[in-house]
Simulated assay, not measured.
Amino acid sequence: MQKSALDISPVHLPREHQHFRAGENWDFLVRLNGKPLENTPVLFETKNRTREVFKTDQDGLVSIPFPFDFPEEDQSANQNAEGHNHSQARRKKASFVLTVEQYADDRKHITHFNYHYTTGAFYKKDLALGIGFALFGMIVAAPLLRKPKKGGKT
């Protein structure tokens, strides 16, 4: 006897110590009884109140663009006694849920996929400062790359 099941799952899971990240698209596969569902609505909701509906393609795939919907933090609340702000170093994190409903065999099937997503690894990092540091390192190392002169004085 075949079990009737509606399923939504990511095509690729994030690698270990990685996450679904804001600003990236992630693909999910929607199936009923093991077969991909075409043109099926997928509801995407985040803890930060983003709510959108996407539809699957002919292969049952839906591409979800993860929003950068994180609220700005109050800087005064995140400072320690010396006035240093350490909250910028942490990535922000929020929950999300994908919901699919489908009617089949005179029954309503509902399934969910829920997890969390974060800001990227370079959140609040200064690219110009990083490039400047790399260039400074190359300039300092340049004298070490010169070939010594062979022989004595001419």
Rank of each mutant, 00 (worst) to 15 (best):
Q2K: 06
K3V: 06
A5K: 15
S9T: 12
S9R: 09
H12T: 09
L13Y: 07
L13M: 10
H17M: 07
H19P: 00
H19A: 07
R21P: 01
R21L: 08
E24D: 09
N25G: 02
W26P: 00
W26Y: 09
D27R: 07
D27V: 10
F28G: 09
V30Q: 00
R31N: 14
N33T: 03
N33D: 15
G34K: 00
G34Q: 07
K35P: 00
E38D: 12
T40C: 14
L43K: 10
K47R: 14
N48K: 06
R49M: 07
T50M: 04
R51D: 08
V53Q: 13
K55R: 15
Q58M: 15
D59V: 10
L61D: 15
V62F: 02
S63L: 00
I64V: 08
I64Y: 02
P67E: 13
D69F: 01
F70I: 09
F70G: 04
A77N: 05
Q79N: 09
H84C: 07
H84T: 13
H84G: 13
N85I: 00
H86F: 14
R91Y: 07
K92S: 08
K92C: 01
S95C: 01
L98R: 06
L98G: 06
E101I: 15
E101C: 09
E101P: 10
E101R: 11
Q102P: 12
A104H: 08
D105K: 11
D106K: 15
R107N: 15
R107H: 15
I110Q: 03
H112A: 12
H116T: 12
T118D: 01
F122L: 13
F122H: 11
K125V: 14
A134Y: 03
L135W: 06
F136K: 00
F136I: 06
G137I: 07
M138E: 11
I139A: 14
A141I: 03
A141G: 01
L144R: 09
R146D: 10
R146E: 05
R146A: 08
P148C: 11
K150E: 01
G152Y: 03
K153C: 06
K153I: 11
K153M: 08
